[in-house]
Design a protein around this nucleic acid. Structure first.
Lengths: 342, 342
DNA sequence: ATGAATTTGAGGTGCGTACCTCATTTCGCA
DNA sequence: TGCGAAATGAGGTACGCACCTCAAATTCAT
């Protein structure tokens, strides 16, 4: 009636407790035939290992290290906060987290930090960083020392991470594209595209997805080249003014962050609310811009989910346990004023 | 360095283990002064009770009962499946679930089932049901017997449930309204509204939200009265044909389920993909309709999240533990073809 | 101060699992 | 057939906590 225990398995398989234990924990010294018999019994009884008791017995603690760029925009701040919160929750499952900031963009520093990670101390590493050769090697080295590594928000496809927690940037860009097209009403229009920098893989992928959709489904819309602002509000204003001097604009696609600077610039030009603005990531600024109608849609990933998923995945990897793909898949959230979460 | 245990608390408070235990588990026979001292020590050391070990020692199992209507549309099926999956996951935390179907709409039967729930057997109850006086009383009685009750997907505001797991229907309707208005391009248009029945609180609330937005922000759009189909494909076809004979339709808002019947009807009329269709809930049918472009947006709640949240909340209630509001809040998902999850 | 009631301490057992040691059995192979 | 190696069994301790019993210490009222 109650859940079967290791003792039941031992009895059912006709072996001793020690052998069941060896099989369960993949310890050596068991014949294949016996391993099979034990697994057979496990399947027959529908045994589910009680991870709570297991971890208790191990008196194991999972110490995870999360690396985030230190400057970072609002989004990084949001993720950091979500991480802290998730960590507090995860404490109940013997999982701890250390948040480590590295100089934004300085992947050499980050690589050095990663090289200093002690596999006996740290059960897993998560990092949000642009992909560079140095970093790729550092990740490889880490994994070689049997430390699970997951990429956060921005994928590192060639570094061989164990997992990527985040959304598909290209699909996110496509989603932004469809919304832009539909919100514009498929009339002949021009759309400006703004980005702080095109160095990050994410921005490039988003732009790709956006263009794909616009080209295929909204041919009457003319998408202008990306205007890089390098984080400078003044550059944004000037660039935007220049574009506007030569042509009319129906919509603006904000590839990365910078909601605040954009709304400021638009306000100065008296364009607030008169052009369709679509951006990425839900931050304090984009929230209020959505609320006041200055931005019309934001494509986002839930930072809370991102954080919890990160810790869960790292823990699963540390346990060499399978991960629940369904639960870990991050949704591409479309946020408008009406479905803004509290 | 490691997390403090009950032993640390005992030492810190200068009392014995037994006393700490009495305080922790609210057992009688401890002076107020001592209780205070122990709580003091707990606060000082930042002790967090290891619920995993606690439940292990208690050898406690959480058996939850989930009641769903038996007929139900695709959505109920989806939720049922998600529940089973969530239950499998939750098994690792000593949480079990029994799925119980009751005759759809028959709240008397459901009330009888609830009356038969044994508080010693069942640690919590979740139910998806329309609100009726009988049911309201049944829920009250259950809660009186100290069984936590949560409402699923459809709220029971006057039954005094411990929690509601689901999205705000009115906000969902508003979201649908904004999308409809924007997708129509704010041109003079007519929108038909279809529903299987308007008896469910959800449908009414959605319609309310939809109307609010249309009236306020898209005045040029004319929203027609709700066409009730009572689940009959033929009725839907006839009703739709009638509407179309007297007027042109730019969009269709599907208040509840019935994606399949609608696309069939539209196909027969050669209207597939020529009118903006917005519906609710992501099911197998609405998925494929989205994919083929027959439906343009779906307002949904994540069934997996719904299921996991339900079990988590019930467990927290059973433990009288606080719940993480942030984690339990369900998002109003906007799903279009481009952000359709796998 | 005395007896009774209340509060506290000490110690044990068990929950389901990990992990260790030391026999003992079985197997593969010469 | 016998030997060494590999496989298995038996039993113990520990993890953090719940819950039990019984004795000892401390109130408290009279």
């Amino acid at each position: 009636m109650s859940r079967p225990t290791v003792n039941d398995i031992a009895r059912e398989a006709g072996v001793s407790l020690a052998t069941v234990d060896r099989v369960l924990n993949a310890r050596p010294g068991v014949r294949d035939k016996t391993i099979f018999a034990v697994n057979e019994a496990i399947a027959r009884l529908g045994y589910i290992r009680d991870m709570a008791a297991a971890n208790l017995a191990r008196s194991r603690r999972y110490r995870m290290a999360v690396f985030l760029p230190d400057g970072g925009g609002q989004f990084v701040q949001t993720v950091a906060a979500a991480m802290e919160e998730a960590a507090q929750q995860a404490a109940a499952t013997r999982t701890e987290m250390t948040l480590i900031r590295y100089p934004a963009g300085d992947t050499h520093s980050l690589a050095a930090l990663l090289a200093g990670v002690d596999p006996d101390e740290v059960a897993g590493v998560a990092l949000m960083a642009p992909e560079t050769p140095v970093l790729r090697d550092a990740v490889r080295a880490l994994r070689h020392r049997a430390v699970p590594v997951v990429a956060l928000a921005s994928d590192l496809p060639n570094a061989g991470c164990d997992h990527f927690v985040g959304i598909d940037s290209r699909a996110a860009g496509r989603t932004a594209g469809v919304l832009m097209g539909r919100f514009l009403g498929n009339r002949p229009q021009r759309v400006a595209v703004l980005a702080e920098t095109m160095l990050l893989r994410d921005a490039i992928e988003r732009r790709r997805g956006f263009d794909e959709v616009m080209l295929a489904d909204f041919a009457t819309v003319d998408v202008l080249p990306t205007l890089e602002t390098h984080g400078a509000t003044e550059a944004l204003r000037r660039g935007l003014a220049e574009v506007l001097s030569s042509t009319e604009i129906g919509g603006i696609y904000l590839l990365g962050s910078g909601h605040r600077a954009l709304t400021a610039a638009l306000e100065g030009m008296g364009l607030l609310g008169r052009v369709v603005v679509i951006g990425h990531e839900l931050t304090l600024h984009s929230r209020s811009a959505l609320q006041s109608g200055h931005i019309h849609a934001v494509i986002a990933q839930n930072p809370g989910h991102l954080a919890r998923s990160t810790l869960r995945v790292l823990r699963a990897k540390a346990d060499r346990a399978p991960i629940d793909e369904g639960q870990e898949q991050l949704r591409i959230d479309i946020v408008i004023r009406e479905n803004l979460p509290d």
